[in-house]
Design a protein around this nucleic acid. Structure first.
Length: 325
DNA sequence: CGGTAGTGCAATGTCTCGGG
DNA sequence: CCCGAGACATTGCACTACCG
């Protein structure tokens, strides 16, 4: 069926152009309706098919894994997948593998980035931390949950990437459209900003912490007082950048490790301070934190109190960088 | 109440990679 | 070389919250 709208051409009047747009919108609406109808029909067909499939079967019953979730659970898992990308980790290269890994009771978050196994444990803890209790256990290992979560993470990455790079980047970096025209112009404009250094004529690389865009007033080297967040330059948001070769996932892990160490050291130094005060003002007190080894429970409780107080404190300062070479 | 911004999501296209 | 699967980016619609 042909629309009554005028043919598209460059010399259309405003009203003709408006008619074209209206016609296009009508067609779009029809297409959407048709799509919805098709979806409903497919749903109905699936229901009929399922009815037949559920007929009694002979033979040994096998233990059935949960392979689909309710609409509400699916919705919740999607939201949690989005949240995981923004709050925990942008990538989980082997989500299924991580989920099927047994939780190690001995896992220590301070050693999270020591080796592959401890990294996986860290991811697992993050997942268990994020997912409500009702999704723990067998359901967590279901194909349905893994697939939904994985897809939601992918979706969130893509959305964030597109909206951040294509819709906000000129404003963020105060640059011109020409700088974003090609990979080459983009690289020339930004690579120094994201830490590109040429050591000599033969070797060049991207530094992880000596990065101008991570600093408010960069003075040529890492400065703990001015570090701050920034974004990057590869054309695709992948674990390893295609253009720069930077391993963004490893960088993210290093940043998390760096912040985690900072938090732990901050807590440790404050705890030390508490102990010194305690010793100074109550040298013979039974509640002394420094020397009273007999009263371990009390010390543990005091430590817990201090930790809780620090956990409630939102303002934290990072510590010195970790060497990664 | 209407406009706008933010967000979620499905559809779709491109690209890469591995298997036959 | 072809094909399918998977990863990723982009687009546009729907929905919601907020604001004047």
């Amino acid at each position: 069926m042909r629309s009554s709208s005028p043919e598209l051409s460059q010399d259309l009047t405003a009203s003709e152009l408006y008619k074209c747009i209206q016609a296009a919108r009508d067609q779009q609406q029809k297409a959407n309706n048709a799509r919805k109808e098709l979806h409903t029909l497919k749903r109905q067909l699936a229901d009929v098919t399922n009815t037949h499939d559920s007929a009694p079967q002979h033979g040994r019953k096998t233990k059935k894994m949960v392979d689909s979730g309710s609409e509400e659970d699916t919705k919740e898992i999607k939201k949690l997948g989005h949240k995981f990308v923004m709050m925990k980790m942008i990538w989980l290269p082997d989500l299924s593998g991580t989920i099927h890994t047994k939780l190690d009771d001995q896992y220590n978050h301070l050693e999270r980035f020591e080796n592959h196994a401890s990294k996986v444990q860290g991811e697992l803890v993050d997942l268990l931390d994020l997912l409500p209790q009702k999704f723990h256990g067998e359901i967590m290992q279901s194909k349905w949950l893994i697939k939904t979560f994985h897809k939601a993470m992918q979706n969130q990455r893509s959305n964030t990437h597109t909206r951040l790079r294509n819709q906000c980047r000129p404003e963020i970096f105060d640059c011109m459209a020409i700088n974003l025209f090609s990979i080459e112009s983009h690289r020339d404009k930004f690579r120094q900003m994201i830490g590109y250094v040429e050591r000599d004529n033969r070797s060049a690389r991207y530094d992880r912490f000596n990065v101008p865009s991570l600093h408010k007033n960069y003075n040529g080297s890492f400065d703990i007082e001015t570090a701050r967040w920034a974004v990057s330059a590869d054309t695709t948001l992948t674990v390893q950048g295609v253009q720069t070769g930077i391993n963004w996932h490893a960088d993210l892990e290093k940043c998390i490790q760096y912040l985690q160490n900072g938090l732990d050291r901050h807590k440790a130094s404050v705890l030390k301070l508490f102990r010194e005060w305690d010793e100074l003002f109550f040298p013979n007190s039974e509640t002394s934190l420094a020397c009273n080894n007999d009263d371990k429970d009390h010390e543990d409780q005091t430590m817990k109190d201090v930790m809780n107080m620090l956990d409630a404190d939102e303002e934290e300062a990072p510590a010195e960088p970790q060497t990664d070479e």
